[in-house]
Simulated assay, not measured.
Amino acid sequence: MKKFTLFTPGPAEVPPRVLKALSEPIIHHRSQDFREIFFEVREKLKKLFKTKQDVIVFASSGTGAMEAAVANFFCKGDKVIVVNGGKFGERWTQICKTYGLDVDEIKVEWGYAVEPDDVKKALEKNGNVKGVFIQGCETSTGVEHPIKEIAKIIRETRGDDTLFVVDGITAVGVFDVDMDGWGVDILLTGSQKALMLPPGLSMISASERALKFMEKSDLPKFYFNIKREMKAQREGETAYTPAISLIKGLRESLRMIVDEEGLENVFARHKKLASILRNMVEGLGLKIFAKRPAPGLTTIEIDNAEEIRKKMRELGAWVAGGQDKLKGKIIRIAHMGYYTEGDMIYVGNVLKTCITGN
Rank of each mutant, 00 (worst) to 15 (best):
L273Q: 11
G236Y: 04
D218P: 13
I345S: 06
V129S: 07
G10C: 07
K231M: 03
A71T: 14
I154G: 05
K3Y: 08
K44I: 02
L277K: 11
S140M: 02
A68I: 04
L197F: 15
G283I: 02
Q192F: 03
A206S: 13
Y223S: 13
V347L: 01
E252M: 07
L250F: 01
V41G: 02
G142W: 00
N358M: 11
Y99V: 08
K152Y: 04
G328S: 12
A71G: 08
R158A: 12
D102S: 13
T241K: 13
I26V: 08
E261M: 13
L22K: 05
V55T: 07
L315W: 03
F289W: 06
G316Q: 14
Q32H: 04
A274D: 02
A317P: 11
L211I: 00
A171E: 05
G190C: 13
V177G: 11
G190V: 03
L101M: 03
I308R: 11
I37S: 08
E109A: 07
M214N: 03
V114K: 05
R234N: 10
E43A: 10
N358D: 14
F133W: 07
I288K: 08
E24I: 00
L19K: 15
I330F: 08
K52I: 01
Y223H: 13
L123H: 07
E144L: 05
A320Y: 02
L123I: 06
E36V: 10
H28I: 00
A320D: 14
T170N: 07
E264R: 15
N225Q: 00
T98A: 11
F74Y: 11
K291Y: 08
I302L: 06
E138M: 00
A294T: 13
N358P: 06
E67F: 01
P9Q: 08
L45F: 11
K120F: 03
K50F: 12
M214T: 03
K79F: 02
E40I: 09
G200Q: 06
F34G: 05
I56F: 00
E215C: 02
V70I: 15
D102L: 10
P242L: 07
E40C: 08
I95V: 14
N304V: 03
N358H: 12
S202M: 01
V184K: 06
M280W: 01
V108S: 04
P220M: 05
V166I: 15
E261W: 12
V174R: 01
D303E: 12
G62T: 06
P16L: 02
A194Q: 08
R17H: 15
G200F: 04
D343R: 10
V166E: 15
I331N: 12
T51L: 09
L195F: 03
G322D: 13
K310P: 00
M179H: 04
L211D: 00
G86D: 10
V258R: 09
G62I: 02
W110G: 05
L201V: 03
E314N: 10
I154P: 04
A268Q: 09
F4K: 04
